[in-house]
Design a protein around this nucleic acid. Structure first.
Lengths: 153, 153
DNA sequence: CCTCAACTGAATATTACTGTCAATAAGGCG
DNA sequence: CGCCTTATTGACAGTAATATTCAGTTGAGG
């Protein structure tokens, strides 16, 4: 329950094959990108597309969208709603890297914070209903100090 | 801080005028709809459009989208990501009605649950950074019992 | 009651994302 | 090792939610 080890190509392959799916070079590359991302960095589909294009490892947008969705549903990635209009993704790290987001609804400035109790509450709530937990995130929508001031104008 | 009283037309007008904005019949109608919604009901933009059409109080989709966004940014409504592809909205009720969502990523079946500690943690986190809190919601992404079974096929 | 800017509605535009389909390549199996 | 099945990919076209534009309308302050 969120305490899964960090994913490797081998564990990804095992989990895919178990369901009759396949490990492809594209999926491996995408997993690697997210694993090497510094803590706090997250990518949109377009970001990832551009980044791979730059690295000469071009992967089609279709595949990127499909892979991001697949990996989110597997619990490997977290789908974040940090800005209007598109999603961001980051690797789903176990405790103690697990964190939450405080988001300014005006400028999208985001601050991360950690909280052990929340993870516990989420785990319990899922357990109680027999749900298999994939991710648990507290989203705080607020107005940052800068935007509070500019609203006075 | 989430302890605001339930909104009335008068308080909505006051808050709008303070910023140079206006109270229009459309905004009043939309506020009323959300206030009369039974607990646990939430509407998408299209839902709201259809519902108003039925009531003979037709409001254009443009205005609906604009109003939902405005009221979310004011903290009157909560923007929920309960299903893929579109948002849902509900009124932002203070404690003890404040709640969170446990969502199946496969079938979107959603269960609500309450938690006082989370509200406290969220309030504190926002305060610490000088953010003005609008809404604070724990989203648990998981697989419901039914979908867990069907995955075995 | 007058003025002016915010607001609405209709139509159009945008864009994030999904579906289709032929070609390709994982992976189980003999 | 090499074959066969079928999941997967990439290119492209399609979709749906949401944003924008703009002319006409209407709140709200003076």
């Amino acid at each position: 329950m969120l305490n899964a080890p960090v994913y490797t190509s081998a564990s990804l392959k095992a989990e895919l094959n178990e369901k009759g799916w396949r490990l492809t070079p594209q999926r491996e590359v995408i997993l690697t990108v997210f694993q090497n991302l510094p803590e706090g960095r997250h990518l949109s589909a377009e970001d990832l597309y551009a980044l791979l294009e730059e690295q000469g490892e071009g992967i089609s947008l279709s595949t990127i969208y499909r892979t991001l969705k697949l990996m989110s549903r597997m619990g490997i990635l977290r789908e974040l709603e940090l800005a209007e209009g598109h999603k961001h993704y980051e690797i789903n790290q176990p405790h103690p890297h697990h964190h939450h987001h405080l988001i300014c609804v005006r400028c999208s400035k985001t601050i991360e914070f950690k909280s052990d109790p929340i993870l516990k509450i989420g785990t319990k709530a899922a357990q109680k209903e027999g749900y298999h937990l994939l991710d648990c995130q507290l989203s705080i929508h607020a107005v940052c100090p800068t935007c509070q001031r500019s609203l006075l104008v």
